[in-house]
Nucleic acid binder design. Structure first.
Ligand SMILES: [Zn+2]
Ligand SMILES: [Zn+2]
Ligand SMILES: [Zn+2]
Ligand SMILES: [Zn+2]
Lengths: 150, 150
DNA sequence: TTCTTTTTGATACGTTACTACGTAATATTG
DNA sequence: CAATATTACGTAGTAACGTATCAAAAAGAA
């Protein structure tokens, strides 16, 4: 089976999973929201909000930025998409949410490519450091810049 | 000794330390750069670039944003200031740079207050996770959102 | 159906960050 | 010192990112 077909298959899996998640939580995965999610899936990496505006706009109809931001906000609240603050961009979240794991987004400083890793060891170390510093209910997401080993 | 005096003393220590660092590395801590750094020290927390524009502008003379951004860039390159990507703001970096430690900025999601913690345990856990994911030369800085325990 | 809530469309606006270019200050060299 | 190279600053304009508002449409509830 070709790589492209594999990608297509994975894409459909992600879409189905997103659909299920929304159904189970009484969230509405409307056409625009699904288009934004699908675009992020197909891109295979982080995409900026205005890039999404361009990609999802047709010649007749240009989407307004706020439309994209609203869809992104929904997808983020649903846990389907992460915002990369260091890159001003957005990327799909894959993997079943392991509550006890830290979701680390490794971001290649040069290319912007990302790799998502879930680690309970990091989560535990961060939790300890937070506790000693008087911090609570720490977010399970973080990003770390570096570079992909080639 | 009063808290205020302690703060003042610490402020002077930081300024002196910054001065020394620049001298040792043939960097020029010009008046504007020192004013920006001092403002960040005095604020005691993260400050936005345009806030700095306001605070360092007088009635006669309004500084241009680029002036602040240039000073911030210098201070960041010198390792004296961190940029908080999640907050679009800037905060002084304190503590002697421990090469083997991860510099964690805990950011209170509500107030924006930060606490900087250096942890070699977190650094080691992140390094391992990065290695397994094919990542190299990971940045020693990260930010984690949460809330300060009161 | 009517009533209510949610979502979307359209426009404008606010914030954050950077670029270009010319001038001034500073450092380096002869 | 003067001549030159480098660095820093002032001014203006612009690009990128994100939000506020209100009206229209769609979806859900009664
Ligand atoms: Zn939200
Ligand atoms: Zn994830
Ligand atoms: Zn720089
Ligand atoms: Zn630090």
């Amino acid at each position: 089976m070709s790589t492209k077909a594999l990608r297509k298959e994975e894409e459909e899996n992600l879409l189905r999973r997103a659909d299920d998640l929304c159904r189970q939580n009484n969230l509405r995965l409307t056409p625009i929201r699904e288009r934004v999610y699908r675009e992020l899936v197909q891109s295979g990496g982080p995409v900026g909000a205005y890039d999404l505006v361009d990609r999802l706009s047709s010649e007749k109809k240009r989407l307004a930025p706020v439309t994209i931001y609203r869809a992104l906000d929904f997808l983020r609240d649903a846990g389907l998409v992460h915002r990369l603050a260091t890159q001003n961009s957005y990327v799909i979240s894959h993997g079943q949410p392991d509550v006890n794991a830290m979701k680390i987004m490794f971001v290649d400083s040069k290319t912007g490519e990302t790799i998502e890793v879930h680690s309970s060891e990091v989560a535990e170390a961060v939790r300890k450091a937070a506790e000693q510093a008087g911090f609570r209910s720490v977010s399970p997401f973080m990003e770390v810049e570096g570079e992909i080993a080639r």
